[in-house]
Design a binder for these strands. Sequence first.
DNA 1: CTCAGTGTTCAGTG
DNA 2: TCACTGAACACTGA
Length: 279
Amino acid sequence: MPELPEVERGRRIAERTARGRTIVAVKCARDPIVFAGHSQQAFRKSLTDAKVKAVHRRGKHLWFELDRRPWPTFHFGMTGGFHTPAQPSTKLVSHGKVDPKAAWPPRFTKIHLFFNDGGELVMSDARRFGRIRLAHDPLTEAPICHLGFDPLLDLPTPQVFIRMMRRRKAPIKAILLDQGFAAGVGNWIADEVLYQTKINPRRPGTTLSDAEAKAVRVAIRKIIRTAVDADCVHDRFPKGWLFHHRWGRNAEARTTRSEKIVHQTIGGRTTAWVPEVQR
DNA sequence: CTCAGTGTTCAGTG
DNA sequence: TCACTGAACACTGA
């Protein structure tokens, strides 16, 4: 579930599990796609006996700061995520059977890290759009160096934001999804921003008024902060959000205020929007 | 069996 | 070179 808030949740999980610990063992799946050409041996050699000083995030990318280089970087793709072992009490369901969802390590585990305090951390990814790489200096190397601003780390001033938006002719939906513009905004956040600011997703960036561009800037920050503060638990998201009603291309979909939701491909992605609100 | 999908990249076009 | 578009990628689950 990886847009910025889900990735930030992953960062916190990793930091809780790994920060200040030493990696004592590493298991890698055989998967040349997710490992982007790095060998298992390179990962084992780089990570084993290294100490994790911090876990960083920019946009949808994560990386470990180790006490020596290179450092591992993680991208969750469509279906990736970090996991830690379930508490023993939650592992059993009725009749004493083990819940398959609590299997450890989980299905589709790509990398499995073991720490000196007995803790474990896994990245799994069913659909293999995720990536695990090694980088000497993640911030200055592709793909992280090509990212635009991160809404939680370095949101531009209103004036700069207006200028960035006005320079672009693409539909605003496509602009918001461009990681070189706003790093970490994904499909549901872009739709939520446009719904809450009442902007038609097809509007070219060049046509936004100052007030509209400023509203978009604030909405990006507010929606992401709110989702991060809720630790991505969906039922803690505000009741009025489009989020709760946008999933699945279903013709009956309506918002909390019973406005009709339509689904169309805009900016190359399924876009859920509310024509009666977004002009 | 078919299709959509919370993401990124790359080829092709203007 | 740049901005933009659309297809491709890989695979699960509905």
